[in-house]
Simulated scan of single mutants.
Amino acid sequence: MNFLRSRLGLAVAAALAGLMMMVGGVAAAGSASAAPASSASEYWIPKGLKTHKVTASALRFRASPNGRVKGLLFRGDRVFIRESYVGSPWVKVVLVGKSKSGFPHKTRGWVHRAYLKRW
């Protein structure tokens, strides 16, 4: 944490520490709250998390930006953006629920931003 204070400033380090505690608190809440909801396709999502839906009929799901193709995501598959960079069309996403192509819940990969729509 001292490294963060020196590089980012005290206010930013405090905000990051608070965020880490919140994320840790969500993870420590237990697996009962993270269990599937009423149907197998619905999963618990932390409050305030903005999910996105795939709008393309078939979207390449990659291991890295413009890298090896892991498989395809199809229209309606739900993801949330884990990482994005200014000026880059690539975003790292995590699947919310099982994809139509069979990828399990929480699978991570990269897709092109243009084919996602906030849901």
Rank of each mutant, 00 (worst) to 15 (best):
G48T: 04
A37I: 12
V12P: 05
R78A: 10
L59Y: 03
R82Y: 07
V12Q: 05
G48D: 07
A11N: 11
A14K: 13
R5W: 11
A56Q: 06
S39E: 13
K70R: 11
R82M: 05
R5Q: 14
F3R: 07
T55P: 07
A13C: 08
G87V: 02
P65I: 03
A29R: 05
G48M: 08
A14I: 09
A27W: 12
L95G: 01
H52Q: 07
S41Q: 10
A35M: 12
K50Q: 15
A58V: 00
S6R: 13
F61L: 07
L95T: 05
S33A: 14
A37S: 13
P65W: 01
S57M: 09
V79Y: 05
R7F: 11
K53Q: 09
S39M: 11
A63E: 07
M21A: 12
A32K: 11
R75I: 06
I81R: 03
R7T: 15
R78D: 04
L73T: 02
S84R: 09
G48V: 07
V79I: 09
V79Q: 06
H52D: 06
K98E: 11
W90T: 01
I45K: 04
R78P: 03
V54P: 02
F61G: 00
G24S: 05
S6W: 09
G102C: 12
P46M: 06
L95F: 02
G102M: 10
S6T: 10
S41E: 13
E42A: 10
P36T: 14
V96R: 01
S84D: 03
D77R: 11
G48L: 07
N66T: 00
S39D: 13
A29M: 08
S6G: 08
T55V: 07
M21G: 08
S57Y: 09
S101T: 01
A17T: 10
P36K: 14
R60H: 13
G67Q: 01
A29Q: 05
V23A: 12
V54T: 02
R7M: 14
H52A: 05
V23K: 11
V96N: 01
P36D: 14
A35R: 14
A27T: 05
H52S: 09
E42R: 06
A63F: 01
S39V: 15
F80L: 10
I45C: 02
L19E: 11
G97D: 00
G97N: 01
G18H: 07
L4E: 15
G97F: 00
S99P: 02
S99Q: 03
A28D: 12
V91I: 08
N66P: 00
F80Y: 11
L59P: 04
